[in-house]
Nucleic acid binder design. Structure first.
Length: 661
DNA sequence: GCGATCAGCT
DNA sequence: CACAGCTGATCGC
């Protein structure tokens, strides 16, 4: 849940992404995107009543957000109160006090946020100054810098405040792979799986309602296989998406949901209940896209974790991510991080007393967690560690060149509008306040053009260097788990497109009834809906944004926002069915050799398959206390049995007293 | 019956 | 932790 309460200091009469409590008195509403945690109160009867009594009250959002919102019956009553604003089109809005008739004009500009279809940031300009509300956003390095509407007269606009979600402004997310990297990895994994046989299917475990569409469309494009979804109506005016998704269950790529879909997958069934016509059990892997994953572990050796999850007793490891201490008791709040400075490091305290305490309690945070990111000119070049210098070099290659001065509670930064450093000594411009979502999120990174973060952390983030994500994402081999059942080896056959005849549409007792499965839905593409960019593309699409290679054929909507959040994929890959003797025999040898190379020094690692030339297969998850560790001999026996296709019986884990069953 | 809140889960 | 949800229980209207 976003902790932003809906209102900004500068424009307290408008509400953004919150529609309850005090926000009921707003003169205008703004919705950045259609995720539930940004829609609190939006369907409340009290708000509906207020709408009906008002002549002026409107909700402003992007055309795509409007489309999505009105698709839902629960929000249909908004129909006459929504005004869609095209992305990248500064629009004047009058805020009218209906009691007194007082009027205030503000200019609002929607900027592409790259978070999910229709998602935008709001730039407000008016009597209260220029403020930017980012909402949830995901933008590649340099992408904001290219937004012309954040510039004026060749310079960045004087942004007084940035209202920012700092969820991923944390050293733990010291590097998140790009959408392209994640997409490449997923494509290869899916390719390696679905080409094995028509019975090999993929389930995309996508929790959020929107934000994975780029994944669906790229998968569909690459393999000419539409992705199965429960319903498509929200996309009926979005042909770029609609073309790649289907309600026809007879496909090898699924993103369908069911209230108990995890149970379905554990039982080797797809949430939609589809089965192969000839009764052959499907072989399902689940892929769980996750950005949080990249913050949950500091030592990431492999993004792809294959097999074993169901078969080994759970007591052998703990899957809990590393915990994080939380300061205070608290209700997370948006609080000012500090002043965004043009060129100096001096901090101007917010006059509002509510924030005075913010800058006095940085001592609460262990020194190690503090980030002191001084401007380059202030850094002692010789004293910086190699990692720091390396990061500096990386940053220098980017458009953004200016560092931000960061500590745990506030940051100061410099702004540059050009590529040189000529404004080092520039006078202070109007300061900007950056609001952060949680007190523990210390880093603010480049929401304003031409800002970058140069950090040296005392924590672990800087110790291991930046991961090379492309290495993690290479799917070289597949480890397949086993079950007690003996299965007939499958014919390996090329699969280049879906095989509709393969699957049975008849609903057996266990299958799921999906309400909206009409054949017309999967084929009908409306041509009426040119509602702006589905992914909030900038006014101009930078050349070479997508690099080279296999993405050159991508369509524009996906070439502009393919670079940050949801696409950070953790392939929590689970294999949920029978062991394929031939394949596994070959692959298990690989695993075995990897495990052998590890030696005794790393016994608390889960065996995983590694990519490319990497030989280490560490995946460091702490052991559950008092658990037994499988000895190498046991593993050898296990591997050999698996390799030869024998049945393996796993002992039930011991009950740990006091623990959950 | 509905909405709000909370706990629990993924 | 928290991403973006969901379900179920409880309480008040």
């Amino acid at each position: 849940m976003s902790s932003f309460q809906g209102r900004m200091h500068e424009y307290p009469s408008i509400s953004i992404d919150r529609f309850d409590r005090d926000n009921l008195l707003a003169k205008a509403y703004f919705l950045s995107h259609c995720h539930k945690d940004h829609m609190k109160g939006l369907r409340a009867p009290v708000l509906k009543r207020r709408l009906e009594c008002s002549l002026k009250l409107k909700l402003y959002c992007s055309p795509v957000t409007k489309e999505i919102l009105l698709t839902s019956k629960k929000y249909k009553f908004w129909e006459n109160y929504i005004i869609a604003i095209e992305v990248g089109t500064p629009t004047q809005i009058s805020l009218v006090d209906e009691a007194t008739g007082e009027k205030e004009d503000i200019l609002v500009t929607l900027l592409p946020a790259g978070h999910c279809p229709g998602s935008v940031m709001f730039l407000f300009e008016g009597g209260g100054g220029t403020v930017l509300y980012t909402g949830d956003f995901r933008l590649a390095k340099g992408e904001v810098a290219r937004m012309e509407l954040l510039h004026s007269g060749g310079r960045i606009k004087d942004i007084q405040s940035v209202y920012l979600d700092t969820t991923f402004c944390d050293p733990r997310f010291y590097q998140i792979p790009s959408r392209v990297e994640c997409l490449n990895g997923i494509l290869e994994l899916v390719r390696s799986w679905i080409t094995l046989s028509p019975y090999h299917v993929v389930w995309l475990n996508c929790k959020a309602a929107y934000g994975y569409e780029y994944l669906f469309t790229n998968l569909s494009e690459e393999f000419s296989i539409q992705v199965h979804l429960n319903k498509l109506d929200m996309f009926h005016n979005m042909p770029e998406i609609l073309h790649h998704v289907t309600t026809d269950r007879s496909t090898q790529i699924h993103a369908c949901r069911h209230p108990k879909d995890e149970d379905f997958i554990r039982g080797n069934r797809l949430p939609c209940g589809i089965t192969a016509k000839d009764g052959t059990p499907l072989r399902i892997i689940s892929i769980k896209p996750s950005t949080m994953w990249f913050g949950e572990r500091t030592n990431k050796s492999s993004v792809i974790v294959r097999g074993w999850w169901n078969e080994l007793p759970r007591k052998w490891w703990s899957l809990k991510p590393l915990g994080r201490k939380c300061l205070g008791d608290g209700e997370p709040m948006y609080k000012p991080l500090g002043k965004l400075k043009r060129s100096r490091n001096c901090f101007i305290k917010e006059q509002d007393g509510d924030y005075d305490d913010l800058f006095d309690d940085s001592h609460l945070i262990p020194l190690k967690q503090r980030l002191q990111c001084a401007p380059r000119s202030q850094l002692d070049e010789e004293n910086r560690d190699p990692e720091q210098q390396r990061e500096q070099q990386v940053d220098e290659e980017s458009v953004s060149k200016r560092p931000i001065y960061v500590n745990t509670e506030f940051l100061e930064c410099e702004e540059s509008n050009d590529d040189d450093d000529n404004d080092e000594d520039e006078e202070d411009k109007e300061a900007a306040t950056v609001y952060q979502k949680r007190e523990l999120n210390p880093i603010w990174k480049g929401s304003v053009p031409d800002l970058s973060v140069h950090c040296s952390s005392g924590g672990k983030a800087g110790e291991t260097g930046s991961p090379q994500w492309d290495m993690f994402f290479k799917a070289e081999s597949v480890l397949i788990s086993e079950t007690e059942e003996d299965s007939e080896p499958l014919r390996e056959q090329e699969v280049c497109s879906q095989s509709p005849k393969l699957f049975s549409d008849s609903e057996d007792g266990d299958s799921v009834h999906l309400p909206s499965q009409t054949s017309s839905q999967s084929t009908h593409i409306s041509e009426q809906g040119s509602q702006g960019s589905l992914f909030g593309e900038p006014n101009h699409i930078p050349e070479n944004r997508m690099g080279s290679g296999k993405f050159t054929k991508e369509k524009p909507p996906f070439s502009t926002a393919l670079d940050v959040e949801k696409s950070n994929i953790n392939w929590d890959v689970q294999q949920h069915h029978q062991f394929h003797p031939d394949l596994s025999a070959a692959l298990l040898n690989t695993d075995h050799s990897n495990s052998s190379q590890k030696g005794e020094g790393q016994q608390n690692s889960i065996p995983v398959f590694k990519s490319g030339s990497q030989t280490s297969s560490d995946f460091e998850i702490p052991l559950t206390p008092d658990s037994d560790l499988p000895q190498p001999e046991e593993l050898n026996i296990l591997y050999n049995k698996l390799a030869s296709g024998k049945t393996i019986t796993i002992k039930a884990p011991k009950q740990i007293s006091g623990g959950k069953s």
